[in-house]
Amino acid sequence: MSLLSIRGITQRFGGVTALTDVSLDVEEGTIHGLIGPNGAGKTTLINIVSGLVRPTEGTLSFNGRENGPWPMAHAVTLGIVRTYQQTRVFMGLTARENLRIAHVAGAGDANAEDLIDALDLGSSLDRVAGELPYATLRRLSLALALGLRPKLLLLDEPAVGLAPDEIARMAEVIRHFHGQGLTVFLVEHNMRFLMELASRVSVFDRGRLLFEGTPEAAQGNPEVIEAYLGRGLKKHAGN
């Protein structure tokens, strides 16, 4: 059964059409990848699903509820939680205070100890977020989202700017919570990271859904190669 159904979403910003009639389903218990070149509309879709932006047209259904999208605060109570491409935590507060806010904002039953262990934040708790290293901040921002006990987690490029060992750690964290029943909708530029994690991928190009299927099928699909993967390959071949 699909946890999230996106139906006919179109988003225009003035004269620019960021998304054109996008429909896709995210199955419960999967890690669903979303790829596409810059400007393909991936973040716009995350913004719509999370309730930050209202779409021009189209609807969502989530976990048996119709008539979405919902405003952000409501979406969170339904179990849709997002992270941001830019690292976003409460910079002036300690990591502990950050987690307390997430704990208070969520149902209040989040297992804080498990979060702290899984994300390796134990040694950073009493430090002010603004003074933490970048990789720790990325993990803290993930902890804020996970602290809300989402059913569906929308991750907007969680691996951006991280070193290879940190990327591996991030993948491990996502698998850990996926193993506990979390469904993940993952936007990512790092192809290896995404292909390793995702069991399904949707490929976007210029605001349209180009392809949907397994990662292997995506890599073998001529249209996808032409529109996205292929450009890089041709360029390399030309060099």
Binding site: A73, V76, R88, F90, I101, V104, G106, L144, A145
Partner: peptide, 19 residues
């Protein structure tokens, strides 16, 4: 806690479902 979140970053507070 919600007030602190609002003071620090309203958008983030909203995305955490804080009223």
């Amino acid at each position: 806690a919600a007030c602190l979140a609002v003071r620090e970053d309203v958008t983030l507070a909203q995305s955490l479902g804080i009223r």
